[in-house]
């Protein structure tokens, strides 16, 4: 309910011309009503990943976003997305060793605002899918809040939780064995060849392949609509 009011307030700001065009286009698209009965095969998913300067979403910044889309269970290579961001905050040494992006790489990147416009245009009202989605969504939300005072309104699914739900049922406590659901381990378990690991587009392509396999497992368990997939 609060969500709905928030969306309506934002759309009013659009009508008053207080928000950029891209942002408003996005807000209109996510305003379409959620259709739980829609078959999964007709839904558009955007599988995305971010690389950041660190793991604190208050002080750290996104330095790259990669994404690929799926229509149902089919990955469309053409409908993919990649952006490098220029940031003032430098990466912690640890993070550099993970994603391998140095300052001089990101200097040639987009400014955060432009990257956000492009990403929102690309995203539209797709269902967001990401591995450990909470973190990536929170990072994007920080950007959106900082520049436009909005956040993401898309439906979202975390592949780690989805895998857990399919393998162990909904009430399994993930906390003490979280390692089993790391992207590397899941890829290995589902026979997906690892490459381009720890680049945002590379990880998103891997996550998409994982999602394909999870959807196939889910289909056998009767998960065939978006509503069943998102437990709504």
């Amino acid at each position: 309910m609060i969500e709905l009011i928030r969306k309506k307030l934002l759309l009013r700001r659009c009508r008053n011309g207080e928000l950029p065009e891209s942002v408003c286009r996005y807000l209109h698209r996510v305003d379409e009503p959620f259709r739980a009965q829609a078959p999964i095969e007709a839904a558009r998913f955007v599988i995305f990943d971010t690389e950041t300067t660190g793991f604190d979403f208050k002080s750290d910044r996104i330095i790259s976003i990669g994404a690929v889309s799926m229509r149902g269970s089919v990955i469309g290579v053409a409908d993919s997305f990649e952006a490098l961001l220029r940031q003032e905050v430098t990466s912690e040494r640890d993070a550099v060793t993970v994603h391998g992006l140095l300052r001089r790489d990101t200097d040639s990147g987009l400014d955060e605002r432009d990257a956000a416009y492009r990403f929102l245009d690309y995203l539209g009202n797709a269902v967001i899918v990401a591995h450990h989605a909470d973190f990536d969504i929170a990072m994007i939300n920080q950007v959106l809040a900082r520049h436009f005072g909005i956040r993401l309104f898309n439906e979202a699914l975390d592949t780690a939780s989805f895998a857990k739900r399919l393998e162990k049922g909904p009430y399994y406590n993930l906390a003490h064995k979280s390692g089993e659901y790391r992207l590397d381990n899941l890829c290995e378990r589902y026979g997906i060849r690892l490459y381009d690991r720890h680049t945002a587009p590379g990880d998103s392509y891997l996550t998409a392949q994982l999602f394909q396999r999870l959807l196939a497992v889910g289909r056998k368990a009767g998960i065939d609509t978006v509503g069943k997939l998102l437990l709504k």
Binding site: R44, G66, A67, V68, S69, V77, A78, D79, S80, F81, E82, R118, D121, Y122, G124, Y195, D196, T199, P201, G202, S204, Y205
Partner: peptide
């Protein structure tokens, strides 16, 4: 959907 350029990394991977 949009007509923006697709991800280089992914296209290269597939190629």
């Amino acid at each position: 959907m949009n007509n923006a350029t697709p991800s280089n990394t992914i296209v290269e991977r597939v190629a």
